[in-house]
Computed example of a mutant assay.
Amino acid sequence: MILFIALVLFPLTAHAVTPSEMLADPALEARARAITTELRCLVCQNQSIDDSDASLAKDLRMLVREKLKEGMSDGEVREFVHARYGDFVLLRPPMKPGTLLLWAAPLIALLAGAAAVWMAARRRAGFPATPAKALSEEERARLKTLGVSDLERPKS
């Protein structure tokens, strides 16, 4: 069973980096992999460039490796790519007014879902959204003239 689970989960650990892209220096390659896992593929959008097979992702992986070979720090490489492609390229965009909705969206979705579940549960339990008002004397008299007692309400 453990072998089956391992075989099923193994594809999830695969990366799109090909051996020809890898740097000879293992420390530099580890830095490159750390950076490329933080950058979004501009084609796939919900994958890092480290995981994407898109040609643009490959180009960005190569660019990251070139900048590291030139002697840039990890932060300088991230900033270089960020300056070129904007906040969208970052899998974790910075908190600022332009990205506030992006950061708040999960909380808003969670609250909306909780409200929908709460409202559905209230309806299912038979509780009206607003409590029924008692009949006024005029309404009782009108019902009496129609031959209906106020305890016999029509079913809707």
Rank of each mutant, 00 (worst) to 15 (best):
M1S: 13
M1T: 14
I2S: 12
A6L: 14
L7F: 10
V8G: 02
L9A: 03
P11Q: 00
P11V: 01
T13H: 05
A16Y: 01
A16T: 12
V17R: 00
M22R: 07
A24Y: 07
A24E: 08
A24H: 12
P26I: 08
P26W: 07
L28P: 12
A32Q: 05
R33L: 15
R33E: 14
I35E: 02
I35S: 00
E38F: 04
L39R: 01
L39S: 00
R40T: 15
C41L: 05
L42Q: 11
Q45C: 13
D51L: 12
S52K: 00
D53S: 10
D53A: 15
A54H: 03
S55P: 13
K58P: 10
D59L: 04
L60N: 05
L60Q: 03
L60I: 08
L60M: 04
R61Q: 02
L63W: 09
V64Q: 00
V64L: 00
E66K: 08
K69C: 12
E70D: 06
G71D: 01
M72G: 10
S73P: 15
G75H: 05
V77S: 00
E79F: 13
F80A: 07
H82R: 02
A83K: 14
R84D: 05
R84Y: 03
R84G: 03
Y85E: 05
G86H: 04
F88E: 14
V89K: 00
L90E: 01
P93M: 01
P93G: 01
P93W: 06
M95C: 13
P97Y: 00
G98I: 08
L100M: 09
L101V: 13
L101W: 04
L102G: 13
L102K: 03
W103D: 05
W103Y: 08
A104P: 09
P106T: 01
L107Y: 11
A109K: 06
A109L: 14
A109H: 13
L110S: 10
L111E: 07
A115M: 12
A116F: 09
W118A: 06
R123W: 11
R123S: 13
A125T: 11
G126R: 01
F127A: 04
T130N: 14
P131G: 00
A132E: 14
K133C: 15
A134Q: 11
L135K: 02
S136Q: 09
E138G: 15
E139L: 06
R140E: 06
A141L: 08
R142Q: 14
R142M: 12
L143K: 02
K144G: 13
L146I: 14
G147P: 04
D150K: 06
L151I: 15
L151C: 10
R153F: 07
P154N: 11
S156A: 15
